[in-house]
């Protein structure tokens, strides 16, 4: 027998999953919203990889995109604003056997959750993080987010926003231990799927930024890119993602980029026109925090009890040296 027996036997009862096995409810996103494209791509990935639903956990914060776990028939955690990443890290430490996905928006990740974002990159835990970047707070009816373009008129900036937009890619590429950075645009579903698939297979913190259109509050922002394929730059390399012949026929603006070259990745990431899509950076050698800390080790009851006792002892009021005497009185 060339493989361990339990694996052989698991194969005997392995069942193939369909897209429906991962679908739960009808998404309430606006029609035309890019979140739908990401949802479809993730569900396809789960089906193609035949992932068991009980081995998947989707964690989110607050925002339009953070409704994502509701639409996956898997474990899910709709968390609090900006805290998707720490929750996901806790899940991964307790259950390293789960495939953890994080769905977070530009406000959730880059504003209130920015500190968690930076440290999550540094911790490099094995999870797939999808930044649904639609450049605006949509759920609360149009306020500027850190990635909103300068001059955007919104409820909070009626005279137009004052600051240049933050670039989540260059920020991520600047943090210690960064191990995977990729970008896709919601209007090229093939790339969304391929990039999320590559991120899923990467051992470490895979950061994928999906540039999305908000059909309700920023419907025109990406119009020029939608109508001019030259404004999209496909990154290609044997270590990157492949593109179908049909896609290559439309998008002729392509460039070879070695994902191991972080300096070039930073240069490419700075570009907004053309907008680069594909894998910008990948380094499989960065260790994962859960491996360093040996997460998932079994904890015998005695160990749990001892830990609890030690924790409770912190709050015990110990008698003073003369306590017995006073008690006696």
């Amino acid at each position: 027998m060339s493989m361990p027996m339990h694996e052989c036997l698991l194969q005997m009862v392995e069942e193939a999953h369909s897209l429906e096995d991962y679908q739960s409810g009808v998404p309430r996103w606006c029609s035309g919203c890019g979140d739908n494209a990401v949802l479809a791509a993730v569900q396809r990935l789960c089906r193609d990889e035949n992932l068991r639903p009980e081995k998947l956990a989707f964690v989110s914060g607050i925002g339009c995109a953070s409704r994502f776990p509701h639409y996956m028939r898997t474990y899910g955690f709709h968390g609090i604003h900006g805290r998707a990443l720490p929750i996901a890290e806790g899940v991964k430490m307790a259950r390293p056997d789960l495939h953890v996905f994080v769905n977070t928006g530009d406000g959730d990740c880059c504003s209130i959750g920015a500190a968690h974002w930076l440290h999550a990159i540094r911790y490099n835990m094995n999870m797939t993080v999808v930044l649904h970047d639609n450049h605006v707070y949509g759920l609360t009816k149009k306020q500027v987010s850190p990635t909103s373009p300068k001059g955007l008129r919104s409820n909070t900036t009626p005279h137009g926003s004052y600051l240049d937009a933050m670039n989540p890619l260059t920020v991520t590429l600047g943090v210690t231990n960064v191990s995977f950075v990729a970008q896709a645009v919601d209007w090229i579903p093939e790339v969304v799927h391929a990039v999320i698939k590559a991120a899923f297979h990467h051992q470490g913190f895979s950061f994928v930024r999906i540039i999305q259109r908000c059909p309700e509050f920023l419907p025109k922002m990406w119009e020029p890119w939608l109508h001019d394929p030259q404004k999209t730059l496909l990154l290609e390399h044997p270590d990157g993602i492949g593109y179908s012949a049909g896609l290559q026929k439309i998008y002729k603006n392509r460039q070879s980029h070695d994902p191991s070259d972080i300096h070039r990745a930073r240069e490419i990431a700075s570009s907004i026109d053309p907008v680069p899509v594909g894998i910008l950076f990948r380094d499989e050698s960065v260790p994962c925090y859960e491996d360093i800390r040996e997460a998932g080790k079994p904890r015998p009851i005695e160990m749990i009890k001892a830990g609890l006792e030690a924790e409770l002892d912190k709050f015990t009021v110990w008698p003073d040296a003369d306590e017995p005497a006073r008690s006696a009185v």
Binding site: C33, N36, A40, P189
Partner: peptide, 12 residues
């Protein structure tokens, strides 16, 4: 179809 972004607009 391969370029569809699954946005539900047509189904609406």
């Amino acid at each position: 179809t391969p370029r569809c972004t699954s946005c539900n607009a047509c189904l609406q």
